[in-house]
Design a protein around this nucleic acid. Structure first.
Length: 347
DNA sequence: TACCTGATAAACATTT
DNA sequence: TAAATGTTTATCAGGT
């Protein structure tokens, strides 16, 4: 199934592959070059991240992952990271991600209601992506074929009425794709037919990248990564609204962003973000509480006039790419309708 | 046009 | 034995 993994039940303690899938030529994050274009007037003018009606696919509505975040996104920077054009360590160094200027999630993620596909419209996701989301949404990160069917049907009503050939396609994908790995069930506890299927750890970034591409293709807004305001901030290493703002600033009684913008910062949300990479070993994850010892970090985001800010703890290793992947992860979770469930630790 | 990828269909073997 | 599951092959469509 998975090249280099030997038998199916071997532990997967290997390191993740390089970031190359994430940095495909099609990836707009290429735009985050040190030699960035100058800002233009094309930056989004209105933002609604913290609006009461967060969109269905707003990841920060309940941003949380099920513990399978890529470790490559979370590892401390390496020299190669620094050389990477997509490296945005300046953001984490500041501990502030000016959301409204870089991540207009609500309009970035959610297509207009009128353009949302109906339940009878075939989802834009490939079968690999559907399988990936299904498995990722399962508590143990492994599902039988039937469980994958059920997840797809329950989350994409199109398949309730679609000709049954799609099930064949699911099985075909599972067998053919290197991204998925078959796990023999414990014979003594085997209930039902067949094996369990999980996602090969080394292919997870690529699967996320596929989701990312779908995400971009089906967003009618330009990529956040091309946002000239963000690019300017990255280029100059400062932002008029967020420069020098740190957690301590928020904890103090002086939440002023700057002398020129004496507005108060109102905490809008508090979220939990899972940042720990979880090995897909069979024994450990099945009994793991997704919230216990999970490496979750807490972040806050704030709204100040038309600007919104994501404030990360000082030692967090999130970069923009990580935030994006978190976003995609969250989308997958929301597609599963289980984000709140997971966030509540109901497993 | 060639190539790649994904979807679909079908045949067949295996397992429960 | 039937149904579900898993594998393999072939074909087609769409994109690059």
């Amino acid at each position: 199934m998975c090249p280099g993994t030997g038998s199916q039940m071997e532990n997967h303690t290997h390191s993740l592959p390089s970031l190359s899938p994430i940095h495909s030529p099609n990836n707009p994050s290429k735009a985050l070059s040190p030699s960035l274009p100058q800002p233009s007037a094309t930056a989004p003018a209105s933002l609604s991240l913290s609006s009461p009606s967060l969109p269905l696919f707003s990841p920060f509505h309940s941003l949380q992952t099920s513990g399978g975040l890529n470790s490559h996104c979370l590892s401390p920077s390496t020299p190669s990271d620094q050389d990477d054009l997509t490296c945005l360590n300046w953001l984490q160094q500041k501990n502030i991600l000016p959301l409204s200027k870089m991540l207009s999630f609500s309009q970035f993620d959610a297509p207009p209601i009128s353009s949302l596909p109906s339940s009878l419209t075939k989802p834009p996701y490939s079968f690999s992506s559907l399988i990936f989301m299904a498995i990722e949404d399962s508590p143990d990160k492994k599902l039988p074929v039937r469980g994958i069917y059920e997840w797809i049907v329950s989350n994409f009503p199109y398949y309730k009425t679609a000709p049954s050939g799609w099930r064949n396609s699911v099985r075909h994908n599972l067998s053919l794709s290197k991204s998925f790995r078959r796990i023999q069930r414990d014979k003594s506890q085997s209930i039902g037919k067949g094996s369990l299927w999980c996602v090969c750890t080394e292919y997870r970034p690529a699967l996320l990248e596929v989701l990312k591409k779908i995400h971009y293709c089906h967003s009618n807004n330009s990529s956040l990564l091309n946002n000239p305001v963000l690019l300017e901030a990255a280029d100059h290493g400062q932002n008029a609204m967020c420069d020098s703002l740190a957690i301590s600033d928020l904890d103090s009684n002086n939440p002023t962003l700057s002398s020129s913008s004496p507005c108060s910062l109102i905490p809008e949300h508090e979220e939990l973000v899972a940042i720990q990479s979880v090995d897909l070993t069979e024994e450990t994850e099945s009994e793991k509480d997704p919230l216990a010892d999970s490496g979750y970090i807490e972040f806050h985001y704030y709204q100040c006039e038309q600007y919104q800010y994501l404030v990360l703890p000082g030692n967090s290793d999130l970069d923009l790419e990580t935030v994006e992947i978190l976003q995609l992860d969250a989308e997958a979770q929301e597609a599963a309708g289980s984000l709140l469930d997971l966030a509540g630790g109901n497993h």
